[in-house]
């Protein structure tokens, strides 16, 4: 018989290196003579989309399009060290470094622009829509490219290089007390599963996933992170296990170590919750790792809801479920 159930899972995740380790990201920025820009960071895009995020941030700061920003990353001859692509840290930490480096280049640009536009202070200038404008007086403006190339002929260059360090303290090794991570990301998911009581097979039908990421700098990529996280959560909960014999891996191939295929995947509803994180770039924090965490629990709790057995050892294989069902019917 096939029985359905739903389960809830919540999780939290402290982002960054944590525990007082200096979590530093650095970035270099150059505004070119036509108003396009290069951003250099050590931060590597491993598929999660960090380079796109940095292009968006720099473009927003300078009033240009992301396509006008070239992000160069992960080349030790060229880029500054921005730490590792892990700990759900690049959007927050390296994103902040990019903002700070852009801000330097922008500050000298605004000062120059104030002179060019006969405005007494750089505070009175804004960058929008490829233009340098006097705030409140949009008719007094110059195309950004024109201003930058004019500046070049006068010997002005607009460069930036800066670092951002996350806030973290070491925990006391005797008591564990301290403020090890900042910020924390949160998520909650509901899974609906169908358990086949004859075979023990579990199919995850639907997952609704709500994740607090501060601000979705790129909703398309955020949805992708959530779906990818759910897939790894499904694998963790139901399918995957490195099996050992005397320390040696018995199943070192994809025919024996099963990761989810498209047929194992539920229908996904991704919900982006934006609780602004004041210290983050445009209020953003991270999403990468948290995306998979609630899935594990939501599935296990849904199995219990469906057939009344509590799986405490992962993965929840058909064998374990059948054994638990047999145990249950004895009672």
């Amino acid at each position: 018989m096939k029985k359905r159930g739903r389960g809830l899972g919540c999780a939290w995740y402290g982002t960054g290196y944590g525990n007082g380790f200096p979590d530093v990201s650095s970035a270099f920025v150059e505004i070119h003579d036509d108003g396009s820009v290069s951003v250099l960071t050590g931060a590597i895009d491993v598929g999660q989309g960090s380079s796109t995020i940095f292009a968006q941030i720099a473009a927003e700061e300078l009033g240009i399009d992301p396509e006008e920003v070239t992000v160069i990353s992960g080349d030790t001859d060229v880029t500054p060290d921005s730490g590792t692509s892990a700990a759900t840290r690049h959007t927050y930490n390296t994103g902040n470094a990019v903002i700070k480096a852009v801000a330097q280049a922008k500050a000298s640009l605004l000062t120059y622009a104030a002179r060019a536009l006969h405005c007494t202070t750089a505070d009175g200038i804004e960058l929008k829509d490829h233009k340098v404008r006097v705030k409140g007086e949009p008719s007094r403006s110059l195309p950004l490219a024109e201003l930058v190339s004019k500046a070049r002929l006068e010997g002005e260059r607009f460069l930036g290089s800066d670092s951002y360090t996350a806030r973290t303290t070491r925990v006391n090794p005797e008591t564990g007390q301290g403020a090890p991570y900042w910020p924390y990301a949160f998520g909650s998911q509901v899974a609906e599963v169908e358990v086949d009581t004859e075979t023990g097979n579990v199919q995850v039908l639907r997952v609704a996933a709500a994740h607090d990421l501060g601000k979705a700098i790129n909703p398309l990529q955020a949805e992708g992170q959530i779906a990818g996280g759910i897939a790894q959560g499904v694998g963790f909960a139901l399918l995957e296990e490195v099996r050992l014999s005397e320390g040696r891996i018995k199943n070192p191939t994809f025919s024996q170590y099963l990761i989810p295929t498209v047929l194992d995947m539920p229908e996904i509803r991704a919900i982006l919750v934006e609780e602004p994180e004041g210290t983050g770039p445009y209020d953003a924090k991270g999403l990468g790792e948290p995306a998979m965490l609630p899935t594990i629990a939501a599935i296990v709790n849904a199995i219990d809801d469906a057939v009344g057995v509590r799986i405490t050892s992962l993965p929840a294989t058909p064998e374990k479920i059948l054994a638990a069902l047999a145990e249950q019917s004895k009672k």
Partner: peptide, 30 residues
């Protein structure tokens, strides 16, 4: 938190729970 850290900034746990509530439906109280 258990480490004595006071959460002062973005803490969206409740919003996340509320956002998925309708998907939970009636979970049988077994």
């Amino acid at each position: 938190t258990a480490t004595g850290q006071v959460l002062t900034g973005s803490v969206g746990m409740e919003e996340c729970l509320k956002a998925v509530k309708s998907y939970l439906g009636e979970v049988s109280a077994r």
